[in-house]
Design a binder for these strands. Structure first.
Lengths: 136, 136
DNA sequence: TTTCAGTTTATAATAATTCTAAACTAGAAA
DNA sequence: TTTCTAGTTTAGAATTATTATAAACTGAAA
């Protein structure tokens, strides 16, 4: 469990001024047992519900970006809001260059998995993709 | 190399009427040696450049969607324009439920790779993520 | 040819995100 | 304490990718 003090220190340690809004958002995000997956939309709903003090959407965006830069959050499946398509329809994998935002194919045979988890009950694996993010 | 006739047949075989626009786009996409990664924006630029006959942006969107549904293209990194974040910052993997659009963590230890490709020259692997798409 | 469902198109609408610039505040310094 | 200011918050406007609309067009069946 996170005490307010801990959160304040955590924020300070990354050069983030511990404002009321940031502390509140941090509490919502990190004061829980299981890990939490969210979009800005779902987080906004959780924060700005009935009776509670409101935090503006812009601040939620700013804060999540700051937390991500500070390494407190991980962005997943962010294609920076643009969809990518590939003429290669065989099952295959990709290098994604963080710098140029370019994709390169990795042939299916270039990656071998020796252990794969069982899918959630009632669900079937439809496809498995590896994305290797690379940087200079 | 693709002849116009082949393209027409290909389209017909999937119930897509081989219109002038679809044939032109198909030629641009499939008549090439290497596989091609693109966004609608880059494709639009390639198609609607100087002097060439124009194809409306709406048609490009429609066509790419039709080709994807027909299995001629693969969509990659599409988070359907919404960014997802995770409070779990350890390196780990995900199940992505196509139906509910929900993410579930897969612990790092649950997936083992026995073969990983060498990154492009001058690039370093920053991280490797597996996304397993599941469906009912 | 005629006919019409399937397509294309310009444009409007929507939705996620970023920008702007004015008001506010944490906390260093007086 | 009070003052001061750089860092923040905020509402709302702007931007950007995408989808919807509805009128005009066209491939191909009859």
């Amino acid at each position: 469990m996170y005490q307010k003090k801990e959160i304040v220190n955590k924020l300070r340690s990354s050069g983030l001024r511990p404002t009321k809004q940031r502390v509140l958002i941090a509490k919502k995000l990190f004061d829980r047992d299981k890990t939490f997956h969210f979009t800005i939309e779902t987080l906004d709903k959780k924060i700005n519900k009935k009776g509670s003090e409101k935090i503006s959407l812009a601040t939620i965006y700013n804060t999540i970006e700051a937390f991500t830069n500070a390494g407190y959050l991980k962005a997943i499946l962010t294609s920076k809001s643009k969809s990518y398509y590939d003429t290669n329809i065989k099952s295959h994998h990709h290098f994604y260059d963080e710098g140029t935002k370019e994709l390169t194919d990795i042939d299916y045979s270039q990656i071998k998995l020796s252990k794969v988890p069982i899918p959630p009950k009632g669900k079937k694996i439809k496809n498995l993709e590896v994305v290797i993010r690379v940087q200079k």
